[in-house]
Amino acid sequence: MAYDPDQAQIVGYVCGTFSLIILVARLGISRWRRESIDLGFFLVSLSILTITGRLVMNEFYLKLPTANDVLHNPDTPDVTSNEALKVGGILVLLARVLLTAALWLQIGILLVFYARITSNIFWVRRLIWVTWIFVGATFVAVVLATFLECQPIDLYWQIEPNPGQCVRAYLQLLIQAIANIIADIMLLVIAYPLMRLSKRSLSQTISIYTLFALGTFCMVITIIRIVLVFSENSSQTTRSLWASVQMLVACFVANAPTIYGSLRVVQRKRSEQRSARGYAEPMRRPSRPERESWIKMTEQAAPPPQIPVDSPTTPPPILSPHHDNPYPATRLSTASSTEDKPHSVKKAV
């Protein structure tokens, strides 16, 4: 199905706007909760800049012709200006780099999220570092493929003689899509310990399975994009429209867990205050920086805690007749001390 440039532009505006709303909402909630500025904060800020830049690119390059559309799509009007082809080709290349940056930044945002809630699991920490290396290497590979698939680079805006298949940028698309799918699979493996959480509430169970479903949906969108781009001879409107959809889905999947978690923590604290004081208080901004997760790992997914061993300098634990657990050391209550006195007097007699 061929898309009109106006359709691609409208979809691009809608998806870009919703993506920016998600990212700005995450930053706003983070600052409202007075959370410390960490790597995730900078990645979200960079995402806002890259998506804004891509929206600006879409405004111009979808109105300009590209060499691939002129050569392979009969509906493209004839071009009389080589300068328009050159400007359109350059803007398309820049937009592809910005799209790659936006998608890879969302992967980084999820890695920061998972690193915080699975930090006690050794193999997950290792896999997160491996994923960071994979993300950096594949980003460089996609950017190089974007600019080097046609050599020399001016083949991207050349009509005669025919520049060949490189103007379709299939190699760049495949490297980007395959790397994205592999990264999504690695993220699902990193998130697997969440499935082993014990004593989950119903809302946590729904949230975890929704997270996995959305991660799978990201891969489905990527596959659909590949199929449609190949079926439409790499039409730029098709590439742009489905890239916008993929960007929105990636932004939602990467930021929804943190937004949902922040709101859930605030709601839980408000509920605790209400139950403790007997009345509902208005939601206030926290007075100091917070860093609390809506979901935590348990002993089933994390290494068992170290049990302290008594040393010669450590006094023996105090045992009470009514307490069997020696850890931590407990003091006898007044009631228990009173009950013990008759026994001690009887022994003395």
Rank of each mutant, 00 (worst) to 15 (best):
Y209S: 11
S231T: 11
V227Q: 10
Y209K: 08
I117C: 10
T205A: 10
A137F: 12
P161R: 01
S231G: 06
S201W: 04
I182E: 02
I185M: 15
L211Y: 00
Y156V: 09
L211W: 02
V130R: 15
P152H: 08
K199L: 13
P152K: 00
Q165R: 14
T138S: 15
Q165V: 09
I224N: 04
T205G: 12
A145K: 04
T205W: 06
V167H: 06
L148P: 03
N180T: 14
L127I: 02
R168V: 09
S201R: 11
A145W: 07
F122V: 10
I223W: 08
L173Q: 07
E232G: 02
L187D: 03
L187E: 00
R196P: 00
G164M: 13
L187G: 02
I117G: 00
V227F: 12
V189I: 15
V189K: 06
A177T: 14
W129Q: 14
I223T: 12
A145I: 08
Q204D: 14
Q204K: 09
W157M: 01
S201D: 07
V143G: 07
T205S: 15
M186I: 02
I224E: 12
R125F: 09
Q176N: 13
T131R: 02
R200S: 12
Q158I: 01
F122L: 14
V143L: 13
K199T: 07
L155E: 03
I121R: 13
A191L: 08
I121G: 00
W157Y: 04
T205K: 13
I226L: 15
A177G: 02
S207C: 13
L197P: 06
Q158K: 12
D154H: 08
